Amino acid sequence: MIDWRHASLSLPGYPNTDQQAAIARLFGCVRVAFNDALTLRKAHYAATGTYLSNRVASAALTTASKRTPEREWLTDGSCVPLQQALRDLDTAYKNFFLTKHRSSCARSFPP
């Protein structure tokens, strides 16, 4: 006899057209937030040679850029994926500078 309490079914789940549109909007928002943060960090590092903290970048991008007319559509989705994209960029920057520091000691991670 089969114990149905421990059985599981494997069924594929595909999003419908409304869900596909919502996912595409979400990925678009995340991509724009990541690219804007990357541009901001590159410009700040080129101008000052120092690291831009995640708190400052988050405040500049998630609040200030949402108030501009061309970026007001960023408020349509959740802020959690946007903040996660900024955290991912911060992790990538930290890993980049630590790797460069270990390999050549030419660049060091700014505090």
Rank of each mutant, 00 (worst) to 15 (best):
N16P: 04
A24C: 03
S8D: 04
Q19F: 07
Y14S: 05
D3P: 00
H6F: 01
P12W: 02
F27M: 13
F27L: 11
S8L: 10
D18P: 01
A22W: 04
S10M: 09
R31I: 00
L9D: 14
A7G: 03
L9A: 14
N16Q: 08
D3K: 02
A21P: 03
R31K: 14
L9F: 14
G13N: 09
L9G: 13
D3C: 06
Y14A: 05
A24D: 12
A21L: 13
R31G: 00
H6C: 02
A33N: 03
N16A: 07
C29F: 08
D3H: 07
A33G: 01
L9W: 15
G13V: 13
G13P: 03
Q19S: 04
Q19P: 02
S8M: 07
T17H: 09
G13Q: 08
Y14D: 03
W4A: 00
T17V: 09
Q19T: 01
P12E: 07
I2D: 08
A33P: 02
A7Q: 14
Q20S: 11
T17Y: 01
C29L: 09
L11C: 14
A22V: 01
C29S: 15
Y14E: 06
P12L: 02
I23N: 10
A24L: 12
I23E: 09
I2M: 02
I2Y: 12
T17L: 07
V30L: 06
Q19N: 07
I2Q: 09
G28Q: 06
S8V: 05
I23C: 07
W4K: 01
V32R: 11
C29Y: 08
A7S: 09
S10C: 09
N16I: 03
V30M: 09
C29M: 14
L9V: 08
V32E: 14
I23T: 04
C29W: 04
W4C: 00
A22S: 13
Y14V: 03
R25M: 08
R31A: 12
G13M: 11
A24G: 00
I2R: 14
S10D: 15
S8K: 11
Q20L: 10
I2F: 12
P15E: 01
L11S: 10
P15F: 07
L11A: 12
G28R: 12
S8Q: 09
V32G: 01
A24S: 12
G28M: 03
A33D: 00
L11Q: 13
Q19E: 12
D3T: 03
F27S: 10
I23V: 06
W4Y: 08
Q20R: 13
L9S: 15
G28D: 05
F27R: 15
T17A: 15
I23Q: 11
L26F: 00
L9Q: 12
I23P: 02
Q19C: 03
Y14R: 14
R5P: 02
V32F: 08
D3R: 07
S10H: 13
D18T: 07
A22K: 15
A7H: 10
V30F: 05
R25V: 02
L11T: 12
A24W: 07
P12K: 04
I23D: 11
D18E: 11
F27V: 05
Q20T: 05
C29T: 04
W4M: 01
A24T: 11
A7R: 14
P15L: 06
A22I: 00
W4N: 00
T17R: 14
R31Q: 09
R25P: 03
P15V: 04
A33K: 02
V32D: 07
